[in-house]
Design a protein around this nucleic acid. Structure first.
Lengths: 332, 332
DNA sequence: TTGAAAGCGTTACCAT
DNA sequence: ATGGTAACGCTTTCAA
């Protein structure tokens, strides 16, 4: 059995109540008594049982984080950022993976929500109309998903898409292909909207050449669609798709970036390690998670949350998978 | 406030004790009463508070999993495997990332160990002599780390290395370079030992050409060492290093696999997506995690653990980064 | 088969 | 400033 607050109290010659106060600073304690209690606790190796504390109404100092797929580097970054920030604020983050299953999403949330101070939901698969019910159990913040009712942090997809396309246009590309993600994906929808809203110069077009699963194989299949389209540049739904694309292009003898420029989205680790390095839109993943934790903790601790909807800027990482349509010559 | 067992009891017209028994099956309950209690619970949306239960000595049905770096796909796979298996067994896995910090390792374990039924430690950074103290707080299983005192699951590194080298030898390579990982890394030590223990045919040599950080940049730097060595094939410490190697080789105009064959270790997702695809040793990551959970749950539930040290076999994934020294011609 | 009561580790309230 | 008491949600004797 672990050391309890009663053990500490007894050894320090005080009552459990006083010891409790010494730890939580929730009431007056004589400085000397306070020191003595802490000393004894240290000596005995006492650790406060936060779950027992919370039973009486206190805080657990724990946050839940629900993630669809830890195997995806996108979420790994999110988890890292959240955990780092939470640690700074004295919170522990409990992560669970839902394996992309919306049911697991609500199950795991239900099993944790009452026991933690708040929850972080990463790109939940749960449809909009059920999100409200899901998040009603306690303080919640959404990461990379918007909602009318729940505070969220997201990166600026419209801007990210614009960054990518503007760069291609600046390189002289006029016929740009967009290899879209799966129709049912929430974030693919966001990208589509952003593309449709693009303000393009005359003579420049961005054409959707297909919708593929958000996996390497999707990109491989998409490669042929892109080649057939005759475009000189392609923006892929995300990096993993872009990597598959790259793979297929090499296999078909299409040179990147000489014959075709390729741009991805997400800046996953593999993007930097690919050959050629993949030009891609980087989202502030770690920063978004940190911000999310800040918002959640504000909520939890009853502070006013400044802004319930935070949109973070993205940036373009230019690597060698993109280049100008015509090699730059000296001006005549 | 959430629905409590007392609410259920009252609505069902029984005492809390009876309701408790109905849920835990820890004593005799009239079948009819049992059904009624469950029905009421369902109707009221009652959820048992496992942490409160555990206060009285019961199980939390929760496992802790301590991971050095979730950003590393190696661990992401481990987490997935563990979570899937735990779910099947009715357990929830709480994951925390230590950011490669041994201190965080013991801190997080301490903060969780008393509150979960058991802990899974993945390749802990804590030195051997302190591991015992760390794991004394409760049932613990080590994943991909050995110990004399703590049950563990690991993959057969000696076999993995042998698989890789045997394949290269079969392809006609006689001068094989080994690009080693950092001296202080526990798993690099394992690989070194395995290489030293190799039983090589006459005329075949495996030479360590350098020790580099286990990162992409390490591989990039190592590329020059490998080229300078004049070897016809190289085994890299792991896939990430191999990917850096590949990158540098392409940059220097060395063709892979024509001029040099490259083999990695781990089979991270990027290995399949690289161009050329990286031949690599695949460890049964998901399986090892599942086995670890099985062992841990046996321990937790007081069943005898069959074997406290499980060693799982690896296999070689051959992709296009390796080929025979001389192209296969027709036999004269 | 059931229920009353005690207790798990902690904290809030109210006396002292 | 301190301590006693009750309570949090649940389980577990033990007696009925």
């Amino acid at each position: 059995m672990a050391v309890t607050i009663r053990d500490v109290a007894r050894h320090a010659g005080v009552s459990p109540s006083t010891a409790s106060r010494a730890f939580t600073l929730s009431g007056p304690v004589d400085p000397e008594t306070h020191a003595r209690v802490l000393a004894v606790a240290e000596e005995l190796g006492y650790r406060r049982n936060r779950w027992a504390s919370s039973l009486r109404g206190g805080a657990t100092k724990k946050l839940a984080m629900i993630v669809p797929d830890l195997t995806n580097p996108f979420f790994a970054d999110l988890v890292r950022g959240a955990q780092a920030r939470a640690h700074e604020l004295g919170y522990l983050v409990l992560v669970t993976d839902t394996d992309d299953d919306p049911r697991a999403e609500s199950e795991m949330l239900a099993s944790l929500a009452d026991r933690v101070d708040g929850s972080l939901l990463c790109t939940p698969r749960t449809p909009d109309d059920q999100l409200g019910r899901l998040t009603s159990r306690g303080p919640t913040v959404l990461l990379h998903r918007t909602s009318d009712d729940v505070p969220y942090v997201i990166s600026d997809v419209a801007q990210g898409v614009r960054l990518a396309v503007d760069n291609l246009v600046a390189l002289g590309h006029r016929d740009i292909a967009y290899l879209d993600g799966p129709p049912e994906s929430w974030s693919a929808g966001l990208r589509r909207t952003a593309i449709a809203a693009l303000d393009l110069p005359d003579g420049v077009a961005v054409r959707t050449v297909g919708q593929v699963p958000a996996r390497f194989e999707g990109g491989v299949a998409g490669g042929d669609l892109v080649v057939a389209s005759g475009a000189t540049a392609v923006l892929a739904f995300n990096d993993v798709v872009a990597l598959g694309l790259l793979h297929r292009l090499v296999a078909r003898g299409v040179r990147v970036p000489d014959d075709l420029s390729v741009v991805g989205y997400d800046d996953v680790p593999s993007a930097a390690m690919a050959t050629p390095g993949l030009t891609t839109v980087a989202q502030p993943l770690v920063a978004s998670a940190r911000t999310g934790v800040d918002m959640l903790v504000d909520l939890v601790e009853g502070r006013p949350v400044g802004d319930a909807a935070v949109v973070l800027p993205t940036h373009l990482v230019v690597r060698s998978s993109t280049r100008a349509v015509e090699p730059l010559g000296r001006t005549a």
